[in-house]
Design a protein around this nucleic acid. Structure first.
Length: 182
DNA sequence: TAGGCCATCTGGTCCT
DNA sequence: AGGACCAGATGGCCTA
């Protein structure tokens, strides 16, 4: 096992540390950065494309400081913490999905777990290989050169499995395909 | 030490 | 209106 695991994860910056400083002056168009509506500060970055129709702003009219309405400072802090928590949960779900994907795709087992980009790349190759296998096996019911819908493909694949009544053939082809691809 | 990978924060935008 | 989604920034950990 690699050491880059729980220990390091737990030592990461904890989200439970004090309520983040929500300095009003760091909001879009604030004085900290001379942000215009076309150049807006987000967190520590800048992003363009503000749609003024979607955002309620208050403050000086006709240019000057404008501030989004979020209620009191305490209310903003609570909202931010709630959003952070939701975002963490969302990312955790995403990571769980990545883990499930890692376990679903065959790859050379190593101590090092697949990175996200590796996982996606392997998954893409896996799908390609499976598609090839299905097309190979479906030769009897697919006309060569014809454009087949996914539904048709699946139907033929299922039909094939029912007729053959075995999965060993699939496994065999899979192994063969991956031997070729990787 | 540089670079890769990752978790988290953040605020704009989209969607219901 | 509020939650989900997205992407940039930041900083920590690990490896070569």
């Amino acid at each position: 096992m690699k050491s880059k695991g729980k220990a390091s994860k737990q030592s990461r910056r904890k989200w439970s540390h004090p309520v983040p400083e929500l300095e009003p002056d760091t909001e879009p168009g604030s004085s900290e950065q001379e942000g215009s509506e076309a150049s807006v500060r987000i967190g520590s970055s800048w992003r363009s494309s503000l749609r003024s129709s979607d955002v309620k702003w208050q403050g000086a009219s006709g240019g000057g400081r404008r501030r989004r309405q979020y209620g009191s400072s305490k209310e903003r802090s609570v909202r931010r913490l709630e959003s952070n928590e939701r975002e963490r949960q969302r990312m955790h779900k995403l990571n769980n999905a990545f883990q499930a994907l890692r376990e679903a795709i065959p790859h050379v087992k190593t101590d090092k777990k697949l990175s996200k980009i590796e996982t996606l790349t392997l998954a893409k190759n896996y799908i390609k290989a499976l598609t090839t296998v299905v097309l190979d096996m479906s030769g009897s019911c697919l006309t060569a050169g014809a454009v087949q819908s996914d539904a048709k493909l699946l139907q033929c694949y299922q039909q094939h499995l029912e007729e053959e009544g075995e999965e060993d053939l699939t496994q065999f082809h899979l192994v063969r395909e991956f031997t070729l691809i990787f």
